[in-house]
């Protein structure tokens, strides 16, 4: 049972949602945008977080959009991960969504919730960091479209009162070669020890994004330059790549830093092999 009360609103459009957030703020109420609820409800039940009001985004048409527009695929923030996997417009995206949580939970857990959530994994963002994805945000200043590199740095860079409406992915990226590696401790239904998504771009350079090995997902061009340097042996690459990590490798009860480092080496070698390196 959730041991406190909150109000629940379900605005019908973007303007209503944004105005409501502002109104609640002016009234001194702590509100939060709500999507699948898997993080918000479980955190509320165990008393980790308290809110005065939830603003559910699931009646907003733009947040449910799922299709092709000109040369882009459009993914509404409130699509569930199963909906994304089932339509499978962008296979690397489906691959990143498919192992998150479990099948039943993925009927509820949304793309926007995963990438805007507070948990460190946020696996669904990995492919979006590799392609020139555009993020559409709505807030008190109106709507803005932001490139992936500016939309995300350790977390989604949303201003106060803003929410994610949709993500747009240029179709050309769905044609490129890709590989995805996700390592778990024991059971397949578990948070990963590491998750890497990789894509070979039009210039034959391999792009890689990392989740779960450190405290937040990241992609760094410096790391890709090392990885694509065909003069280096794989072990040298791994050493240099780890030295470029923005923060140390996680060391916790799920897996020691040494073990994750070992898995990283294996996973990078697997990606190099699958994507043909510089071949």
């Amino acid at each position: 049972m959730i041991p406190f009360n909150f109000k629940y609103y379900r605005p019908a459009n973007i303007e209503e949602a944004v105005e409501l957030y502002q109104q609640l703020k002016a009234d001194g109420e702590k509100s939060i945008y709500y999507a699948g609820g898997t993080e918000i409800v479980t955190n509320a039940r165990d008393g980790q977080k308290k809110y005065d009001a939830l603003i559910d985004l699931k009646d907003i048409n733009e947040c449910l959009e799922h299709g092709e527009k000109n040369d882009e695929y459009v993914f509404g923030a409130c699509l569930t991960l199963n909906e994304i996997v089932e339509k499978d417009y962008f296979p690397l995206f489906s691959l990143a969504c498919r192992p998150v949580a479990d099948h039943t939970t993925r009927n509820q857990l949304t793309m926007g919730g995963n990438i805007c959530g507070k948990l460190p994994y946020r696996e669904v963002i990995l492919p979006l960091m590799l392609v020139e994805a555009n993020f559409v945000f709505a807030g008190p200043e109106g709507m803005r479209t932001v490139a992936a590199a500016e939309a995300y740095d350790k977390r989604m860079l949303l201003n106060e009162g803003e929410f994610l409406v949709q993500v747009k992915v240029p179709k050309k990226f769905a044609e490129l070669d890709y590989h995805d590696v996700r390592k778990v401790k024991q059971s397949e239904v578990d948070y990963p020890l590491l998750h890497l998504a990789a894509l070979k771009d039009e210039a034959d350079q391999i792009r890689i994004a990392f989740s779960s090995i450190c405290a937040f997902p990241f992609r760094l061009e410096d790391i890709e330059a090392i990885f694509n340097d065909s003069q280096l042996e794989m072990e040298e690459k791994v050493e240099q790549i780890v030295a470029k990590f923005p923060i140390p490798i996680k060391d916790d009860k799920r897996g020691s830093a040494d073990y994750r480092r070992l898995l990283l080496g294996q996973s990078l070698a697997e990606i190099w092999h699958k994507l043909g390196g510089d071949a």
């Binding site: 609820g37 479980t42 939830l54 199963n82 949580a101 479990d102 039943t104 009927n107 509820q108």
Partner: peptide, 21 residues
């Protein structure tokens, strides 16, 4: 959200009712 003992169908889809308001 971990065990599935609370699963019900909502519009024919299985959902964990402990995480649904």
């Amino acid at each position: 959200g971990d065990c599935g003992a609370c699963t019900v169908l909502i519009n024919e889809k299985p959902v964990k009712s402990c995480m649904k308001l």
